[in-house]
Write a protein that binds this DNA or RNA. Structure first.
Lengths: 144, 144
DNA sequence: ATCGACTCTGTCGCAGCTACAGGTTCAAGA
DNA sequence: TCTTGAACCTGTAGCTGCGACAGAGTCGAT
């Protein structure tokens, strides 16, 4: 039996450290509405609890997975309201996954273009370079 | 037979269209010093020439290849002063290539994590989702 | 009471542009 | 020559997702 009293309070710095983010990130997430404004001490300092820590962890995890803030906002409200199905979450994830795959493809095209260009170069100490020639020429559709 | 006189002048809009960028981009590149301030008409309108168009194309091509502005600035000054060797340009390209490859690897890790998560999901119309469970759990080192 | 560490607010800065407001100029047609 | 209307001018704000800073106030241990 635990008495969760008001002494179980975290400062902003402690919350940030425990959740694993920068202290200013906490304030930022509050500002944009991902974290609710917490209780305050008499002097005005924020007072967080375990639940805030869990929520912040969730947010940070979603960010690590690359979900943009707006999608994360949807995720959070669905979870908050217990109003989601696995199908909906999976669909959001697939949409996100598609954009990740698109970015990968773009970067891979870029990578191939750059490596071809670098290979064509002699790399010598001469004032004449295939890469520069390329860039002085016409644009292709390889860039990103 | 064409007389290339001072009448061969391009407005900002025309330059942008021919080089293939947004009109405001031209002004931006002038502001940050990639394009020199051009001559002006009596009324104050910018007057560009063929040389400006070539320079802008070079810049845009380098940007398509993902070179950040600061590296591009180096490239431009080297080309402007005819003070570069193929080896130097190649080295810059390889550095850039490395960062592109790093980004690809990060995104691929992310892609794998997301697809594994999505596969674990039933996708059904149930209020219980493996992806959400995952995000409520501990962070891993897969995210980016 | 004092002291250092922490926190408070508001605001700027980053990259690389894009968009807008409110005004002026240009070029073509009547 | 006059009149449109498109294009241009400047300065500034906005986008994403925070991080950094200044100058002031608070907290907790001594």
């Amino acid at each position: 039996m635990t008495f969760t009293t008001s002494r179980d309070v975290l400062t902003r710095g402690t919350l940030a450290k425990r959740a694993g983010c920068h202290i200013e990130t906490v304030r930022y997430y509050e500002k944009i509405g991902l974290l609710a404004p917490p209780a305050r001490s008499v002097g005005g300092h924020r007072q967080y609890r375990e639940a805030d820590q869990r929520r912040l962890r969730f947010i940070l995890r979603a960010r690590e997975l690359g979900f943009p803030i707006e999608e994360l906002r949807s995720l959070l409200s669905m979870v908050d309201e217990h109003a989601y199905t696995c199908g909906e979450i999976q669909a959001m994830t697939m949409t996100h996954l598609t954009s990740v795959r698109d970015r990968i493809r773009d970067l891979q095209r870029l990578e191939r273009t750059l490596s071809v260009m670098a290979e064509r170069c002699s790399g010598d100490q001469v004032p004449d370079c295939a890469i520069i020639e390329e860039m002085l020429g016409e644009p292709t559709r390889d860039g990103g």
